Simulated scan of single mutants.
Amino acid sequence: MAGDDLAGHWWQVDLGREQSLTGIRVKFYQEGNFLYVIQTSVNGMDWNVASNQTGQTLTDQIRTDRFNAGARYVRIVYNGLPKGLSAGHYSFEVYGN
């Protein structure tokens, strides 16, 4: 969990090699309208938006985003946070073929 309630924090995972991805499942540390973008990269430097959840109004603790991408790296960027809450999640699962 981030140490403050400011947007812009991110977390990423290295899958070890390029994979064919079909989506993610994230469990936030509590319910709230977390606004975020899921990005993917083959090299860890050049990023593509796989799912943009910045404009949604969901407050579910568990969210699933489906997309198709070839990538080695996946990250979540927190673009907006519920009032008084910090960026953070309990689990982050990446799905693929």
Rank of each mutant, 00 (worst) to 15 (best):
L6S: 13
G16I: 04
W47N: 03
G96T: 06
R66T: 15
S86M: 06
L58S: 15
R25Q: 14
G32M: 03
E93Q: 12
W47A: 09
E93S: 12
L6G: 10
A7P: 11
V37H: 06
K27M: 02
S91G: 11
Q12L: 15
V74A: 13
F34Q: 02
P82E: 00
F28G: 04
R75Q: 11
I62M: 02
I76A: 10
D60I: 00
W10N: 14
W47M: 05
D5R: 03
G88E: 02
A71Y: 03
T54C: 11
L21A: 11
N33G: 02
A71L: 08
M1H: 11
V94Q: 10
A87R: 03
K83P: 13
E93T: 09
Y73H: 08
A2L: 08
P82G: 01
M45I: 01
N52E: 13
G3K: 10
M1Y: 07
R72G: 09
N79L: 13
W11Y: 14
G88L: 02
R25K: 15
G23R: 04
N33M: 01
Y36M: 10
G44W: 01
G84H: 00
N48F: 09
Q61A: 06
G55I: 01
L35A: 14
Q12D: 12
T59Q: 07
N43M: 02
H89S: 11
Y73E: 08
G96Q: 07
E31F: 00
S41R: 01
R72L: 09
V74K: 06
V49G: 04
S51C: 12
H9C: 03
V77M: 11
G80A: 07
S86N: 13
A69Q: 04
E93C: 03
Q30P: 00
Q19T: 05
G23Y: 09
G55A: 14
V37Y: 02
H9G: 13
G70M: 10
D14M: 05
K27D: 09
Q56I: 11
V37F: 04
E18W: 03
D60A: 13
D5E: 13
Q39K: 10
G32F: 01
V37G: 07
Q53I: 05
I24W: 01
H9N: 14
I76T: 08
S51M: 09
V74W: 03
N52T: 11
G88F: 02
W47P: 00
G80C: 07
Y36I: 09
F92T: 02
E93I: 08
V74F: 10
G8N: 13
Q61L: 00
R25I: 03
E31G: 04
V42I: 13
G16H: 11
H89D: 00
I76K: 08
D60Y: 01
Q19E: 15
I62F: 00
T59Y: 01
D4P: 02
G55E: 12
N68E: 15
N79K: 15
E93Y: 09
N48H: 12
T54W: 08
G84E: 03
Y73M: 07
G16S: 11
G3V: 03
R66V: 14
V26A: 05
N52G: 12
G84A: 02
T57R: 12
Y95S: 12
L6V: 12
V77A: 08
E31S: 12
W11D: 12
V13E: 07
A69N: 05
A2R: 10
V26G: 03
G44E: 04
E31I: 00
R25M: 08
A7F: 09
Y29K: 01
F28M: 09
I24D: 00
K27P: 00
